[in-house]
Design a protein around this nucleic acid. Sequence first.
DNA 1: CCGCTGACTGCGG
DNA 2: ACCGCAGCCAGCG
Length: 95
Amino acid sequence: MDEETVEQVRAVVAAIPPGRVLAYGDVAELAGLRSARLVGRILAEDGADLPWHRVLRSNGTVADHLRHRQLELLRAEGVLADGARVDMRTYRWGG
DNA sequence: CCGCTGACTGCGG
DNA sequence: ACCGCAGCCAGCG
């Protein structure tokens, strides 16, 4: 992985305010990338120390293996999920 | 080089 | 709401 790319993504994710969220694609755009998948990959490898739970799919759902943990962390900062889905219109940073 | 695999996305049926 | 498909970037066999 390109170190600069990783740092760009890390910077964007670190800047998301508590109680707000972004889609992988949003992070990619803000970091100057064309691939949302790459953002997911970077968070998987270098995202442990970041508020990675504020990044989810564009439709408000999250990957299965993260579902429980991520929704729990979001709930703790006031982001409520309607079942397995977060309302992006309400919580998306910017909006 | 080829194909498969993901913390993904938008479009069409 | 469901499904498939094409694009997407990087790593692995």
